[in-house]
Design a protein around this nucleic acid. Structure first.
Lengths: 101, 101
DNA sequence: AACTTATATGAACATATATTCATATATTGA
DNA sequence: TCAATATATGAATATATGTTCATATAAGTT
């Protein structure tokens, strides 16, 4: 790939690094990958992935801040789903790439 | 995007997280982005990006370990270039995405 | 061999990060 | 209002990470 080089401005650099940081942690990867198949409550995510509820909640806040996930409320339950198709696409692409080792 | 959910095995998870970790640091992003436009020596990279030679060298080792960059020698000079088109493609894709805010 | 230039390396430090535990908040139903 | 359930939050801790400084290695030149 041959790209025209253009130095990265601070803001772009920040957004890009934050985006990839979100995808650099195994727990967040597993959560996002699960959410690629539908919406789940915090407890469901924790159970499916064998994580503490607190851990899931912390990481969901992280992902929410970056607008990578969203939720809808139903009673006391919050159903989370992904909210950034582009980022999810990159993740799934990279997972497939990694699987062909 | 609707994906079939398949729990991630340890190895895939490791590769994916490592890949994104490489792309999560501003310095490494700037280096890879520069390398998207050609090959550069360590000193050239340091000068262009206003970084210490040592910093660049450390980060290049990091990227080299993940086989994201390679180098060729010419005398005492090492010319680095990218070595993973897929990862570079993801980076450039995300940069463009971030630039349209 | 001595000198110069280019690059790599290791230790030290400061900072960032993920997880855990304990507890707080919020919603629903009795 | 009280109890039960679901989720969020803050503090503490352990670990990971990036940069810097000093120095080592390596290749080329005289």
């Amino acid at each position: 790939m041959k790209e025209l080089y253009e130095p990265l401005d601070e803001e772009t650099l920040f957004i890009v690094s934050q985006t990839f940081k979100a995808l650099s942690d195994p727990t967040r990867i597993r959560i996002l990958h699960l959410l690629s198949s539908g919406e789940f409550s915090v407890t469901e995510i924790a159970n499916r992935l064998s994580l503490l509820q607190s851990t899931v909640s912390h990481q969901l806040r992280f992902l929410k801040n970056l607008r990578l996930v969203k939720y809808r409320r139903e009673g006391t339950t919050l159903y989370y789903s992904y909210d950034d198709e582009h980022v999810l696409h990159i993740l799934e692409q990279t997972i497939r790439h990694a699987r062909d080792h």
